[in-house]
């Protein structure tokens, strides 16, 4: 789901076009002289539809606000802490907005505000935000990273030191026609090249199968996530869940029954991304596969997400 932006309607379009030209347009009732926001086809005071538009001065005061320490929706995680404001325009109507360029301790209900027209070229829309009218009260709001305890980086020097570490070189189970067949049946792949004839080859995704190692039950973690036997130790992270994020591979040789593959793995990269539910650490593990003739068979990269 993408972050929501306003979609103007036939009735509201002048308001949004106005913002693009740095003007705040309010609906005005020619019958009762009421000025209102948001735009409607009838006046909320007298229900007349004899309406026109009036340009507001743009000046307003802070009616109320809150600083949301948690995203109000996962799609707004990038804006935390969110300075959620209700602004009362000089002409009377109130408007939902957010505050910019103000340190937390300078925010006061009733403070004078001035508009900031924030144009988003990609979305073709201008949002109306506000900042203190008094330039002495302006200043940078603390960034999300400083404010959120959860966003303290998991990438300690100790964790970063794992980048570049390599595993032992280990040999996998010998490739057999039976194991290839089991793999094909499990992936619902009926390609005859893998299943019958003189020259059976393994399907490409088979390459890591001979390295999926059995370990005794008492060596398994509680969630059952599989372990490997090549001595590659994972960095210590707060995150407990490991999710499979993706895979890329390049092939150089076919794999055939009778082949014995050797593999060596390496931490290619470790990086962090922040999202709604806290930060995730991405680990990229590269593996190089060679066969018994010393020929390079494949190189793959697994992305593992620690969340």
């Amino acid at each position: 789901m993408k972050k929501p932006y306003p979609v103007p309607t036939p009735d509201s379009r002048p308001f949004w076009n106005g913002l693009a030209e740095q003007k705040i347009l309010l609906k005005h009732c020619r019958d009762c002289d009421c000025v209102f926001h948001y735009p409607r086809v009838t006046c909320p005071n007298c229900l007349s539809s004899d309406l026109d538009w009036k340009q507001a001065s743009g000046q307003g005061t802070l009616y109320t606000y809150t600083i949301s320490r948690r995203p109000t929706h996962p799609l707004f995680a990038d804006e935390v802490p969110q300075f959620m404001a209700v602004v009362e325009l000089e002409e009377g109507p109130r408007i939902t907005s957010t505050l910019l360029n103000v340190p937390e301790d300078k925010i006061q209900i009733g403070m004078a505000l001035t508009p900031v027209f924030e144009h988003n070229e990609k979305e073709k829309i201008t949002l109306l935000r506000f900042q203190p009218a008094d330039t002495a009260l302006r200043g940078a709001a603390p960034s999300a990273a400083e404010d959120k305890p959860a966003s303290a980086s998991q990438l300690t020097p100790e964790v970063l030191a794992y980048i570049g570490r390599v595993s032992d070189k280990v040999s996998g189970y010998p490739v057999s026609a039976e194991e290839i067949r089991r793999f094909c049946y499990a992936t619902d792949d009926h390609n005859p090249r893998y299943l019958s004839g003189e020259d059976i080859v393994a399907p490409p995704m088979f390459v890591s199968i001979p390295f999926d190692w059995e370990v005794p039950m008492d060596s398994l973690p509680e969630d059952g996530t599989p372990q490997q036997n090549d001595g590659l130790v994972f960095p210590p992270l707060k995150a407990k869940r490991k999710l499979f994020g993706g895979y890329q591979v390049e092939y150089f040789q076919e794999i055939r029954p009778g082949d014995v593959l050797t593999r060596q793995r390496k931490f290619l990269d470790i990086y962090e991304r922040s999202g709604a539910s806290g930060s995730s650490v991405f680990m990229l593990i590269e593996a190089t596969y060679t066969n018994q003739r010393g020929e390079k068979v494949a190189v793959d990269i697994n992305t593992i997400i620690n969340r």
């Binding site: 049946y185 499990a186 199968i209 999926d212 969630d223 059952g224 996530t225 599989p226």
Partner: peptide
């Protein structure tokens, strides 16, 4: 079947 062939007890 896929967990079995990949020896994946997750």
């Amino acid at each position: 079947l896929y967990s079995a062939i990949t020896r994946n007890p997750h």
